[in-house]
């Protein structure tokens, strides 16, 4: 399933196989969800570079020199950050992300705090799209690793799928 995801040219590996066709598979040490947008998001998360800083499956743990916190934020509790505490609510949002019409359909979704959920969604998208400088711990110290801007590398659908994958970590 993942292997069939077409990667942007810049994310393709540097070298080409010298021997035979590569064995194709959808396996990874975590359990596949069976949802196509979540699996596409999982593949993108691990190939475009998110996992390099935010860890495998968003588990965090990568050190950021002179950042206000010790490590680059983990992303595996994104559902809580979007104020989604019920699995059914997480599911509803993942479905909206799959249709790529989440902001328009949230008001009819029946989610209790939908305006907050929508605001959190917009702010996350904005942060991924435009990047963010990382706060310095020692103001005179070196520049920490910033969150890069992804607007030139990911499509709007890509970002929805990646968010769907991260939310699925709470299912």
């Amino acid at each position: 399933m993942w292997a069939s995801v077409e990667l942007p040219a810049w994310a393709r590996p540097l070298s080409a196989p010298t021997a035979g066709p590569p064995e194709r598979s959808s396996a990874f040490p975590t359990t596949p969800s069976g949802l196509p947008n979540v699996e596409r998001g999982r593949r993108l998360f691990h190939t475009v570079g998110c996992a390099v800083c935010h860890g495998i499956d968003g588990a965090g743990g990568v050190r950021n020199p002179n950042y206000v916190r010790d490590t680059i934020p983990a992303l595996d509790r994104l559902a809580e950050r979007m104020l989604l505490f019920e699995k059914a609510d997480v599911q509803t949002v993942i479905e909206g992300l799959a249709r790529h019409d989440l902001p328009d359909t949230l008001p009819q979704s029946g989610l209790p705090r939908w305006p907050v959920v929508r605001a959190q969604y917009e702010s996350l998208r904005n942060l991924i799209w435009n990047g963010n400088p990382a706060g310095k711990r020692d103001p005179r110290g070196p520049e920490p690793i910033p969150m890069p801007a992804w607007k030139d590398r990911l499509s709007s659908e890509d970002v929805d799928d990646i968010l769907a994958f991260l939310l699925s970590r709470s299912l």
Binding site: A3, R12, P13, P17
Partner: peptide, 14 residues
């Protein structure tokens, strides 16, 4: 290395 036979090397963009 987790999804294919061929390991390859990371792209420069990474």
């Amino acid at each position: 290395t987790y999804v294919e036979a061929w390991a390859g090397l990371p792209s420069v963009e990474l």
